[in-house]
């Protein structure tokens, strides 16, 4: 479905990561602002169902239009794009009347994805909900760049594993379904003990080894599954190195490419900036944070890992 319709001009980036409060919305707004500063025509989409607040980062307190109209009145997505006070950045406000994520029907979801892909923008950046709900994962999977945000803390790390694992499993299942192997992945996973399978990588390896046709399909489809990791609110070098460790463990454990694209240091100016209602990247250009956002975005574009501090 999503994979087959890549006729659009712009790129879709999605920002997820499982845990709430890690700064997904801050990253979305800052990445968007930086892209806009670079001259890209950017539309930000707030898909944080029930917790939408991306608009506050742009000084909009009472949005006139929101995704609610899309879900309840069938409004077209392109009519819901609102301009911000800042050059090149427009916004689709999230559903502020907290419609529950599981109330969204399958056909609404497909329609939403179709319309996101048709948005008139060079860059669409989507802010996702916390958690690993299927709708969140599906939105994540339509993106050209999949960004995962976390903070240096055990629960956030756990949630990120969960999120990446679930995204990958979802991708495998959807891919196989598209090729007519309906529930095979789920079935084997449910009976994994009989197959001597302990984890997702072993499941994927098993599928590839047992059915060469499936192997070819998965190799092809999973080639585009690449995660960009960004570590937010770091306070020291050890925190920064955690990102590299997470990348290492996830690659060795899941066998999927992960790029540790950036880290952003903790800074109180982020909170101040939200209160002031102006984009952080415009208000606090000279901070370390702002520089690190730039490095993070450039690394993503170039396909490069962030450089690590060295020494022992």
């Amino acid at each position: 479905m999503a994979q087959t319709t890549k006729v659009r001009e712009g790129e879709i980036w999605a920002v997820g990561g499982g845990k709430g409060g890690t700064g997904k919305t801050f990253i979305t707004s800052s990445v968007g602002t930086y892209l806009a500063k670079k001259g890209k025509n950017v539309v930000l989409v707030d898909m944080d169902i029930g917790g939408a607040n991306l608009h506050s980062f742009f000084g909009i307190s009472r949005p006139q239009k929101s995704l609610t109209s899309f879900f309840e009145k069938g409004a077209s997505l392109s009519d819901l794009v609102v301009k911000t006070d800042f050059d090149n950045i427009a916004l689709i406000t999230g559903d502020i009347h907290s419609i529950a994520s599981d109330k969204i029907t399958f056909s609404q979801k497909l329609k939403l994805f179709r319309q996101i892909m048709k948005l008139n923008a060079q860059n669409v950046v989507i802010d996702l909900s916390a958690g690993s709900h299927n709708n969140t994962l599906d939105t994540f999977l339509i993106a050209d760049r999949m960004i995962v945000v976390l903070v240096p803390e055990v629960i956030a790390i756990e949630n990120v594993y969960h999120f990446i694992k679930n995204s990958l499993f979802r991708k495998v299942k959807k891919t196989l379904k598209e090729y007519g192997f309906k529930e095979i992945a789920q079935h084997i996973w449910d009976h994994r003990q009989n197959y001597g399978i302990n984890n997702l990588k072993e499941l994927i390896d098993y599928l590839k080894d047992s059915f060469s046709y499936i192997g070819t399909i998965l190799d092809h489809e999973l080639a585009s599954f690449k995660i960009h990791l960004v570590l937010n609110m770091v306070r020291n070098n050890n925190d920064i190195l955690l990102g590299a460790s997470i990348k290492s463990v996830m690659m060795k454990y899941l066998g999927v490419p992960i790029q540790y694209s950036g880290y952003i240091e903790y800074n109180d100016a982020v909170w101040k900036s939200v209160r002031e209602g102006r984009p952080f990247m415009l208000n606090y250009m000279a901070t370390g944070c702002a520089k690190q956002i730039e490095i993070f975005v450039e690394n993503m574009i170039k396909g490069k890992d962030v450089s690590l501090p060295v020494g022992f």
């Binding site: 055990v154 790390i157 594993y161 955690l242 460790s245 290492s248 463990v249 454990y253």
Partner: peptide, 22 residues
């Protein structure tokens, strides 16, 4: 050095995987 330290020690990064990464 970094990877050796990670996989030889008990990092909080490995803990959540438990037996999935034996």
């Amino acid at each position: 050095l970094r990877l050796k330290k990670l996989y030889a020690g008990d990092s909080i990064v490995l803990a959540p995987l438990g037996e999935e990464f034996p």
